[in-house]
Simulated assay, not measured.
Amino acid sequence: MSVGGNARSGRRPGRSGTREAILDAARVRFAEVGFDRASIRSIATAASVDPALVHHYFGTKQELFTAALELPIDPNVVLAQVAAAPLDELGETLIRAVVTVWDSPVGVPAVAAFRTLLASADPALARSFLLEIVLKDVRARVDSPPGTGLKRSVLAASQLAGLLVTRKLLHLDPIASMPVEELAKAVGPTLQRYFTGDLG
C-alpha cells in the first residue's frame, strides 16, 4: 500500500508511535552497519512502515541520523563553515565553529547529547557519527600523503573531545572562560598540525 506523504499509514497506533518506531529502528540500524551502509528502505522495513513515511517525518538520511542521536543542531551548520575554509586555516576554523556552537543557546543540550552518546554502552553510534558525518569530508581534504586522512582527522577529534571535556564538563579555567577567538588562536595550530603537518 502506498502512503505517499500521508502521516497516517494505519500500521501504527498514532503519529508519535510511528515516529518513535522509525527512530528506534534507525538507532539499531545505524549502530549495526554505520551511517553510509544503512538505507532508508532497511530502516523503514525494520520499523514496519513505508519508506515514504521516513522521508515524511525526517527528510534526509542525515536528518534522520541527527534525530536518532537527539542532537539539538544540524551538524551541517558547523560542517558548512569548515568546508568553506581554506586548507591552511582548517584548524582555527574548526575550533571557532565548534566552540561557538557549544557556547550558544543550543550548547547545553548539544553537550548533553554528546555526553549521552559517549557514555552509551555501545559506542557504534558515536563512532559512526564522528567518522561518517563529522570527519568524512575533512578526512578526504587532509589525506596527504595518501592514506593519512583517517589518522589526521581522528587525532584532531581527540583534541576536540579533550577541549569539550575541559571547557564544558569540567569547567577548568582559563580554558572554560577563554573567549572563542583566543581559544581558536591557541588550539587551532595544534589541529592544523594534525591536519597538514608532519606526523612523524
Rank of each mutant, 00 (worst) to 15 (best):
R12D: 01
F65H: 08
D143M: 06
L69V: 12
L160E: 02
V142P: 04
R15A: 13
G147W: 07
I43Q: 07
T196H: 05
A119K: 05
T166R: 07
V99G: 06
T45L: 11
G34M: 10
T116R: 15
V180S: 06
P123S: 09
T18F: 00
G10K: 05
T66H: 05
I40V: 15
E63V: 06
V180H: 11
V108T: 15
P105M: 07
T148R: 02
I43Y: 10
M1L: 09
A38K: 00
V108H: 06
I133L: 13
T60P: 09
P145K: 11
I22S: 01
D50Q: 14
A68G: 09
R8H: 12
G147R: 07
L117F: 10
L71I: 03
R41W: 07
P109W: 12
R152V: 05
A84M: 00
A67I: 01
P109C: 09
R193L: 14
E32S: 03
Q159V: 15
V98M: 01
H171E: 13
R193V: 15
S177V: 14
A38I: 01
A26G: 08
E92A: 14
R37I: 06
R115E: 15
R27G: 04
P145H: 11
A38C: 00
L183A: 04
S128N: 11
V106R: 08
D36C: 12
L53Y: 04
L191F: 08
R19K: 15
D122M: 09
P123Y: 14
M1Q: 04
L64W: 02
A124K: 07
R19M: 06
P86Q: 06
G34C: 12
I43F: 11
S144E: 12
R167L: 13
R193D: 08
A156Y: 02
T196A: 12
V98S: 02
A176Q: 13
E63T: 11
K185P: 00
T190N: 13
T166I: 05
P109L: 03
A140T: 09
G17P: 02
R193S: 10
L131M: 10
K185M: 00
L199Q: 14
I43G: 02
A26L: 05
V54F: 00
A21H: 03
G162H: 11
R37G: 14
V33Q: 07
A121P: 02
A157Y: 03
D122A: 13
I95M: 09
G147L: 08
A161M: 13
W102T: 05
V3F: 11
A97R: 03
I43R: 08
S158F: 08
S104D: 13
R11H: 10
G149A: 10
A161P: 06
G14K: 02
A83H: 04
I43E: 05
Q81M: 13
R96V: 06
D173C: 06
S158I: 05
P179C: 06
E182F: 00
T60Q: 11
K185V: 10
G147Y: 07
D143W: 02
L172D: 09
D88H: 15
E89D: 11
A31Y: 04
A97V: 07
A25N: 01
T116E: 09
S177E: 12
P146M: 04
